[in-house]
């Protein structure tokens, strides 16, 4: 694992306990983890972090903006638009899910229906494909 280059993942999630569990699991799986709880915070992390390989995004976030606003910003940014985004949410409605998929996110998951490892392995598979 030491030889393998670490992937950096940005987690945008408003719920602290979930963020902590997720960070721990991702670190254990060899990721470098950056977290934020608002759209603004997420953009800042993107700007200030050297390279982010993948984004884990919740729909409902702290602040006035939600996950869709974030995806719109990312997809409109020339450097960030190819970063795969995995939306993992408990509250998104059918139209928002459709919006996410239309905006080109990699996948959508209902949070409570999946183990972290199931989603993490999907993320890893996507990253491997890209390399």
């Amino acid at each position: 694992m030491a030889e393998k280059q670490k992937h950096t993942i940005l987690i945008l999630e408003d719920d602290q306990p979930l963020t902590r569990a997720l960070s721990d699991a991702l670190v254990k799986n060899g990721f470098a983890v950056v977290t934020a709880a608002t759209v603004e915070g997420g953009i800042k992390k993107l700007e200030h972090t050297k390279h982010i390989d993948v984004i884990w995004l919740d729909h409902y976030l702290l602040g006035t903006e939600n996950g869709i606003d974030f995806v719109v910003k990312v997809k409109n940014h020339p450097e960030w638009k190819s970063i795969p985004i995995f939306v993992v949410s408990n509250t998104a409605s059918a139209p928002s899910i459709r919006s996410y998929l239309e905006l080109g996110v990699s996948n959508f998951y209902t949070k409570s229906d999946y183990d972290m490892t199931q989603i993490i392995s999907d993320i890893e598979a996507t990253l491997e494909k890209e390399e």
């Binding site: 719920d15 306990p17 979930l18 569990a21 997720l22 721990d24 699991a25 408990n90 509250t91 209902t110 949070k111 409570s112 183990d115 972290m116 490892t117």
Partner: peptide
């Protein structure tokens, strides 16, 4: 769903 996710993920870990 949010607390359920927490229980799920922590027990998973």
């Amino acid at each position: 769903r949010t607390p359920l996710s927490a229980i799920r993920w922590y027990s998973e870990m």
